[in-house]
């Protein structure tokens, strides 16, 4: 952990309201130089709003936001030279050629003429688009577009990179390559903010901020977050029929939670040893065949389901 006090982003008590709707509710966190900070949460959790505020695209309603030493609330323009941003939707010009897009953004970021050529070549090779410099951007496949957009966001060598759901709609191979690039960035000391709703991608991050309904639910490294679940144990159950099993388990004593994951159930119990004995017997007695039941390591998705569940329980509202 680069926890050397070298803070590049500090957010304190951030609130963003749209009319009467509170999209971001008292969010605080810090990010350190060279760190990959992941924002995790379902759609509408407020991840994109936080990132847009950090980029100065939206003004905070309350709280302080310092990015690269600049108070974004007071000087949204001042932060632009230090950051690169890649939005949720692909947002380069489809009717411009690859090299024209890069030249355009190099111009906007004020990249020195002398080095702009080199930077553009670098961006092209980073995106693996050699030989496609004069293709219309609109004709590129999704993965290439994403990497080109990343290349554009990096032309001016920003200290901090904001990526809002960068891999949505991109095939798994390309996602993998994309993450390799992000790791490369962080290796060079660039702080990277990534929002995603792919739980598997969260494992690539140094630290995670879990958000739900505008609030930070939890924060920490992936192992730390997984550890949060270990109040109790997680079991994987394969049962037949699944639906009846779920119904039975949800009401049983000793079971904290049961949820469907693919074609099996994740069951969180207070005591693994006891449950491994009692549960199969109970299920069999109610006519459900228990094919297998074994303890497993909690995934981030389990963490999220648990934490989000606790939050709704506290607020008393129905879960989305």
């Amino acid at each position: 952990m680069p926890n050397d006090g070298n803070i590049s982003v500090r957010v304190d008590g951030l609130v963003k309201r749209f009319g009467s709707f509170t999209a971001v509710d008292r969010v605080s966190f810090s990010a350190y130089r060279g760190e990959i900070l992941g924002f995790l949460g379902p759609n509408g959790a407020g991840k994109s709003t936080v990132i847009r505020i950090l980029c100065g695209l939206l003004r905070p309603s309350e709280g302080s936001v310092i990015v690269a030493g600049v108070d974004v609330g007071k000087d949204p323009e001042g932060v632009r030279h230090h950051i690169g941003y890649m939005s949720q939707k692909f947002s380069l010009y489809n009717d411009l050629e690859v090299s024209e897009n890069l030249r355009f953004f190099a111009g906007l970021y004020g990249v020195d003429r002398g080095i702009a050529g080199d930077r553009i070549r670098e961006a092209i090779s980073l995106a693996g688009l050699q030989g496609h410099e004069h293709d219309l951007t609109g004709t590129l496949a999704g993965g290439w577009k994403q990497r080109l957009a990343l290349g554009c966001a990096l032309l001016h060598r920003p200290e901090i990179l904001f990526l809002d759901e960068p891999t949505s709609g991109v095939d798994p191979m390309s996602r993998r390559q994309f993450w390799d690039l992000i790791h490369g960035m962080s290796g060079r000391g660039v702080t990277v903010f990534v929002s995603t709703h792919y739980m598997d991608e969260a494992e690539y991050c140094d630290r995670l901020v879990l958000m739900n309904r505008g609030r930070v639910v939890a924060m920490g490294t992936p192992p730390e977050l997984r550890h949060l679940v270990k109040k109790g144990a997680l079991l994987l159950a394969k049962c037949e029929p699944l639906g009846t099993a779920l119904q039975i388990l949800q009401g049983s004593p000793g079971v904290a939670e049961a949820a469907v994951f693919g074609n099996s159930l994740h069951v969180r119990v207070e005591q693994a040893e006891d449950a491994l004995v009692t549960l199969p017997a109970m299920l069999e007695s109610r006519g459900v065949k228990c094919v297998s039941l074994k303890p497993i390591e909690a995934s981030l998705e389990d963490v999220f389901v648990q934490l989000a569940g606790e939050q709704s329980a506290v607020r008393g509202g129905p879960d989305r």
Binding site: G84, S87, S91, L108, C152
Partner: peptide, 14 residues
């Protein structure tokens, strides 16, 4: 409408 505005806004252009 094409979503390119956000990218434009995030740059230092005035």
């Amino acid at each position: 409408e094409r979503g390119t505005m956000e990218q434009l806004l995030s740059t230092p252009i005035t």
